[in-house]
Amino acid sequence: MKYLVLMYGEESRWERATAQERETVMQAHNAFDAAVREGARMLGGEALAEAASSSTLRPAAAGGSRQVTDGPYAEAVEQLGGFYLVEAPDLDEMIALCQRLPDYYTIEIRPTVNVDL
């Protein structure tokens, strides 16, 4: 099954982090990446720029065009900071792999679905 792993965290924490703390975070990602390549399949992943750099397109009124607004959809302390797309055998394997990610993240594991048309 394919899972989208969404990582949420306090953005200022990364900004405040010392070089050594950043190194620890990077090591955690490397350990995750290595474990995924061993027991599952890494399909992709990126770190994201800060939420303030985001632009949101709201649904358009009938016949109209979309309005562009500044910033993320929701105001929250924890913001989406990065994602991975992983193919893993099942949820328990995916959970076990995610235990390697930096421990201050909130992690959402979302299964993907095949949409057959």
Partner: peptide, 14 residues
């Protein structure tokens, strides 16, 4: 079904 929860036994550590 949709989250892919396994019908399996976790390892002894879990």
């Amino acid at each position: 079904a949709s989250a892919g929860m396994p019908f399996g036994l976790p390892g002894p550590d879990r």
